[in-house]
Structure formats: C-alpha cells, structure tokens
C-alpha cells in the first residue's frame, strides 16, 4: 500500500541524503520525495511516499524518528490530507493539433507554459490519480519529456504538523 509521510527536519547540510539513505538501506522503496523549506527557515519539510505494508510503514516512521535532525514524523491518514504534485510535459504538437490540445488542457485545468511550431509544454498541479489520467491522454500525441515533482501534502482542517 502507498503511504504518505510528512517529515520535519532541521534544514542542515546532508539531511536529505540521511533520510533517503536510511529508507533505502532499511529495504523500503521511495515512490516520491519532495522537499522544501517551511515557514521557519531552519526547518525543511519532506513529503515522502513509500509503498509497503503496515509493519513497514511503522518501521519507516520509527527509523526516521531516530535520525537526530528529524524533528517530527507523521504518517498521514487516508482522506485526512490533500496531496498535489506539479507536472510539466513537453508534447509533440503541430499547428493542426493545437486546438485539440488547448481543449484538453482546459478540461484538465492544465496551463500551457511554452509553445513552438512543433511542440507544446503543459503544466498541471493535481492529485497523482488525475496526473496519471492527464499523462495517458497526452501519450497519443507523443510525449517528448516529462517532469514530475512528486507530491507535497498538507493536512485538511486546522490541524498542522509542527514540532
């Protein structure tokens, strides 16, 4: 099963490699990892998606907690958080196809961020599921390049993950 884990860490040199190295060497697969600084510049937040069983995610959580630069670890509960990822796709697209592509972008709430005579670059911020749909719709046009950030997640309601 896929679990989304949010981790607050000290914004120090080498922390990202400590976290990713730990998860890898304990035998878990990272599906995605996104990291960025928080409202407090000394603290970064990572959103990590791992694919494992329930015991596995418990171990990941406990092992992450053991790292000295780790401040807080939380496994987010299904349905209690919002997750988004940013995707940028460069597709083959000639003048004839452009209208169809714009229509598709409109339906999916994607933005066109670059255009040439033979290509079009789109940007989408959405859930992983909708992102997958978007990509599958673009595939017939010929995807030249695909860039995904991996998801960032935040809890629903007034709850926050803080120290």
């Amino acid at each position: 099963m896929r679990y989304t884990i949010t981790v607050l860490v000290q914004n120090h040199y080498g922390v990202l490699s400590k976290v990713s190295g730990l998860i890898a060497r304990r035998g878990f697969n990272i599906e995605s990892l996104a990291v960025g600084v928080t409202e407090n510049p000394d603290i970064s937040r990572m959103t990590i998606v791992v694919d494992c069983d329930e015991n596995g995610v418990e171990q990941v959580e406990k092992q992450l907690n053991k790292l000295i630069p780790t401040i807080k670890v939380r496994v987010l509960k299904e349905g209690a958080y919002i997750a988004r990822e940013l995707t940028m796709v460069k597709v083959s697209c000639n003048a004839k196809q452009r209208a169809e592509m714009m229509n598709l972008a409109d339906i999916m709430h994607a933005r066109i961020i670059d255009v040439t005579a033979t290509s079009l670059t789109l940007e989408l911020t959405d859930t992983t599921a909708r992102t997958e749909t978007f990509i599958s719709l673009l595939r017939p046009f010929g995807i030249k390049e695909l860039v995904r950030t991996g998801i960032s997640a935040i809890e629903l309601g007034v709850n926050t993950t803080k120290k």
């Binding site: 418990e58 171990q59 907690n65």
Partner: peptide, 8 residues
C-alpha cells in the same frame, strides 16, 4: 529504549 526495536 529504542522504539524502533519493538515490533521490528
């Protein structure tokens, strides 16, 4: 003392 050992 190490919570990660419990259940590992």
């Amino acid at each position: 003392i190490d919570p990660a050992e419990i259940g590992k």
